[in-house]
Design a protein around this nucleic acid. Structure first.
Length: 503
RNA sequence: GUCCCGUUCGUCUAGCCAGGUCAGGACACCGGGUUUUCAUCCCGGCAACAGGGGUUCGAAUCCCCUACGGGACGCCA
């Protein structure tokens, strides 16, 4: 019997839509379509504390913006729903029970502190850190007593004590990992929700996923998944681990070093079809090596075996060049105008600006010089105007602190932004008036411009945050950046004054 | 630290699976031409098989070792 090819993209709704998600989605889509199958979108929201509806919506909208379409998902019902893992909690719990009944999983009562100690001890002894099996040997009676006493517990996966796990990666061939390297993975958290590993395997099976195409970061936990399929007595899907997108320094693509938000590219004025085209060139070339192609063209000739395994660096310069070619070659002048109107050259956007610009206008021609920075990717900076009365290294610290704060800001509106800066001034023991000129410069590149908080709101999170980063980069290039040590002590300081969370 | 994955111009890559063309294209960069400037466009240039050992008449291509890079090691995904 030939099963229809089904792939899936399984984002976690815990933040802004990420280009890495789009990258994986694109290849999953191309593969499924090429083979006459379907791609499904499944929301992996098993982390109750971090998942949000806003993020889920934003991710779906961003993928749609890029022209990536799924055949089944939370908004598009199919035969295998629901497509949101939080709505499948019972299904997961039942499957955890099956494993417990079969003796493949067991409850564990260890505290976070004990686990931490065990881990550091193992690291010190140069062993691979993993659960030591402390609760594995608890008797039935002990377990029941602890549970009735109301002790919190998790469910762990039993892992073979010796031998090795061998699985096939479609792109890399046989991969072998010692079972000794594999942790007794938690399958169900103490809040009753499953972890990724359990939910992922159960849902992939139930949703008839035939090919798991995902990031390289998952290779080392694949044995856990293989083991789960075996314990459930299910066929394993075919695995293909794609390389990870990289920063220019080759580390995994991260927002500290590169814009990673899909919305950044939208707000900075890139065409969605250029983004998906460019992502399609990451680790992949069409057989005829053409570099301008649509998702449909990518799909038509798609061959997953052509994926090259070295981690591709996301190169903004080439992306810009590609966008320029689309503007000149793929669109008519009329279309370019239309697309610009869709972007920001429209009355809706200008209306947002007018209330703040009006007091400063004498004639219309004053408008563009005043508000031009709201249409820019980022402004050019000049050292002495940027730092003003500040010491340059103090400015770096302040900007970095503000970046961390802005990273956590939600919802993104004037009121919250205002509060953020008031708080910043207070915590830094400065007057609001003293710190604002710096941020006027960071955001607008000008000393005369529109009101700061409104400008930041209009700019949106992706562009605003980028400007802080650009300012920091600029200060670094001028020799006033934060040293590694300085950053570390600033971070410590920050956690004390502003709370432990850094996004 | 342990394990896993990877390694062709600075960057994206073709070629590798089925060993045998000056290792090809694109971005960036440099130079020249077109253009009243700039940009576009055209032409040219720079520039790579990580290192070592095997197998072979012959290795970027197959095998082994080393180095380097990355990832994973969470009650995150």
């Amino acid at each position: 019997m030939n099963m229809p090819v089904r792939t899936r993209i399984a984002p976690s709704p815990t933040g802004a839509p990420h280009v890495g998600t789009a990258y994986m989605a694109l290849f999953n889509l191309a593969f499924a379509r090429k083979n006459g199958g379907q791609m499904i979108l499944r929301i992996e929201d098993t982390d109750q504390s971090r998942s949000s509806n806003e993020s889920e919506t934003a991710i779906m909208e961003s993928l749609q913006w890029l022209g990536i379409e799924w055949d089944e998902g939370p908004d598009k019902d199919g035969k295998f729903g629901p497509y949101r893992q939080s709505e499948r909690k019972n299904i997961h719990a039942q499957h955890v029970q099956i494993l417990r009944d079969k003796g493949h999983a067991y409850p564990c009562f260890c505290t976070a502190n004990r686990l931490k100690d065990v881990r550091s001890e193992q690291m010190a002894k140069k062993e691979t850190p993993r659960y030591d099996g402390h609760c594995l040997h608890l008797s039935q009676e002990e377990v029941e007593n602890k549970i009735t006493a109301g002790e919190k517990f998790v469910i762990r996966l039993k892992v073979p004590t010796d031998g090795e796990c061998c699985f096939t990666d479609e792109l890399r061939g046989e991969v072998k990992i010692d079972w000794k390297q594999i942790d007794h993975q938690i399958l169900q958290k103490s809040d009753g929700y499953p972890t990724y590993h359990l939910a992922n395997v159960v849902d992939d099976h139930l949703m008839r996923i035939t090919h798991v195409i995902r990031g390289e970061e998952w290779i080392s936990s694949t044995p856990k998944h293989v083991l789960l399929y075996k314990y459930f007595d299910w066929d394993t899907p075919i695995f293909a681990h794609l390389p990870l997108l990289r920063n220019p320094d080759k580390s995994k693509l991260s927002k500290r070093k590169n814009p990673t938000g899909i919305n950044y590219y939208r707000d900075a004025g890139f065409l969605p079809e250029v983004i998906s085209n460019y992502l399609g060139t990451m680790g992949y070339t069409l057989p005829d090596q053409r570099e301008i192609f649509s998702i449909e063209e990518l799909t038509q000739s798609f061959d997953i075996r052509r994926v090259s395994l070295g981690g591709p660096i996301f190169d903004l310069a080439k992306l810009k060049w590609l966008n320029g070619r689309y503007l000149r070659e793929k669109l008519s002048e009329k279309e370019v105008v239309e697309r610009m109107i869709d972007w920001k050259i429209n009355s809706g956007f200008i209306q947002k600006i007018i209330p703040h610009a009006l007091q400063r206008l004498e004639n219309f021609s004053d408008f563009m010089p005043l508000s031009g920075f709201l249409f820019q990717d980022y402004p050019e900076l000049e050292l002495s105007s940027l730092i003003g009365k500040f010491d340059a290294s103090d400015a770096s610290k302040l900007i970095k602190t503000c970046e961390w704060e802005l990273e956590k800001l939600a919802p993104w509106n004037r009121h919250q932004i205002c509060k953020l800066f008031q708080n910043l001034a207070e915590k830094e023991d400065k007057k609001l008036k003293e710190i604002l000129p710096l941020f006027f410069q960071v955001i607008s590149g000008e000393s005369v411009s529109l009101p700061l908080f409104d400008s930041i709101e209009i700019l949106g999170p992706d562009l605003a945050r980028l400007r802080l980063r650009k300012a920091l980069e600029f200060l670094t290039s001028e020799g006033f950046g934060l040293s590694k040590k300085g950053l570390k002590s600033l971070e410590k300081d920050y956690r004390q004054k502003y709370g432990d969370r850094i996004d």
